[in-house]
Design a protein around this nucleic acid. Structure first.
Lengths: 236, 236
DNA sequence: GACTCAATATGTTATAAAACATAAATCTAG
DNA sequence: CTAGATTTATGTTTTATAACATATTGAGTC
């Protein structure tokens, strides 16, 4: 079967799928964005941007999964965000007009749209609905970040890992079976997302399995008992 | 001496001092804001807003100092922000159009300006420079929040406290003598800002004094050796 | 000026989680 | 298919920090 058709089958995204942009633009603005953006494809483990670089485009994740992490002090990384389609990537630095303070690496093959700075600022100037979308996104993410600060500093290991699994569920959802987490992270990534050592992520995951809260098959995690998981998350 | 004059001496702020707003508005917009805002005064320990409440105005801190904190799981609070004039207060929830996820309490007597939601959204619609200011503020605060998440989870007690003192210095600066921190927190607040128990804040502060890095006189903290403090902060 | 209550100080004990140490399993490349 | 590297697994030791226990000081009140 020719490759082209295969791609269409997989619903290769276009920038029109980025609803945060496309839903609020006028026809003229849509045309402008359409003619002035570029598309890049990334494969697993590719670096999308690195701490210190200064962005000159707004990036939109059309498809795939991305982890955003900060390098810590004892060499341990902290994953500060798991991004899903169709959201902006690295937009915090872009709008703060400063360098990235975290790095973005591909978890699952990505299609990313690049909109040049000049175009974005033109949109901000002309279309206040677009500005409002950006403001709302940033405000919500700041709320999430502060919430996470408290859980990552105050909850115990079990609570932190349980919460992380639930957060991943909220972001990426389940497979069709309704129990399999639709994201496949290494134990190390899971640890870096939950502020713990890899050993402790492995160990704690095992205890969850023994308690029949989840099943683990390599990187495939199934949530058997979401209620208990939520209880563990709440108790700290 | 009549009270009025005293007040003028203390440079009672007006909404014109909020540069993030006033610098970018047209004369007409300034007039509108001037005629449609209210002013409230708060004294020490007053609650400005609480977790769960939904804001219907944008709050600007004209003068005073405010702590913003989230109630943690083991009863321990986490201070997520120390606000200084002339910045917005509780604007994250306002722009996320949801409830506050933290509470704001007065550290030093405050003058706060309230701008009704309708007026703010009118400004957002008409004045894209104002929108840009909001976007930049949120983006910068998100960067700070993520940075703090990593330090609060990964640095050791000494590093966390050292960093907190330096952050307080950056926010509030020094007194005229160039070494006295221009903010006077209880040991408990200092602990809640640095993710540690009050006991450990007291203890660690004492060791800093013994090491001639700072002096402590009640709540008055003087930084004697900023370089060493930065070193302690960096090492974790 | 004695009396309360809250804040500060400091020593001791308990514990959660990191660090360390292997080992088994899985993946990758030649 | 084998060798090496990476990831996963699990047991043991160490340590940072919370929890606990009292003092001590200071600030406000009657």
């Amino acid at each position: 079967m020719p490759r082209r058709i295969d791609n269409n089958f997989n619903a290769e995204p276009t920038i029109k799928d980025i609803s945060q942009i496309y839903d609020v633009l006028t026809d003229e603005e849509k045309e402008k964005v359409l003619n002035n953006h570029s598309v890049k494809h990334f494969k697993k483990n590719d670096v999308i941007y690195q701490e210190g670089e200064t962005p000159d485009s707004l990036l939109c994740l059309g498809s795939g999964k991305v982890k955003v992490y900060k390098v810590g002090f004892g060499g341990r990384d902290q994953i500060v965000r798991m991004a899903n389609p169709t959201s902006f990537i690295g937009y915090r630095a872009f709008f703060a007009e400063g360098p990235h303070v975290a790095s973005a690496v591909v978890i699952e093959p990505c299609t990313i749209f690049y909109i040049p700075k000049a175009i974005v600022y033109e949109l901000l100037e002309r279309n206040h609905q677009f500005s409002l979308n950006i403001i709302r996104s940033l405000a919500q993410e700041l709320g999430f970040s502060r919430y996470r600060t408290v859980t990552l500093t105050q909850k115990h290991i079990r609570g932190r890992l349980a919460e992380s699994l639930l957060v991943l569920k909220d972001i990426y959802g389940f497979e069709d079976d309704g129990i399999t987490l639709n994201v496949y992270l290494s134990r190390e990534d899971l640890a870096n997302f939950s502020n713990m050592t890899t050993s402790n992520a492995i160990r704690t995951l095992s205890t969850f399995v023994n308690e029949n809260v989840i099943t683990v098959d390599g990187r495939i995690i199934r949530i058997l008992d979401q209620e208990t998981l939520e209880k563990i998350s709440k108790l700290g």
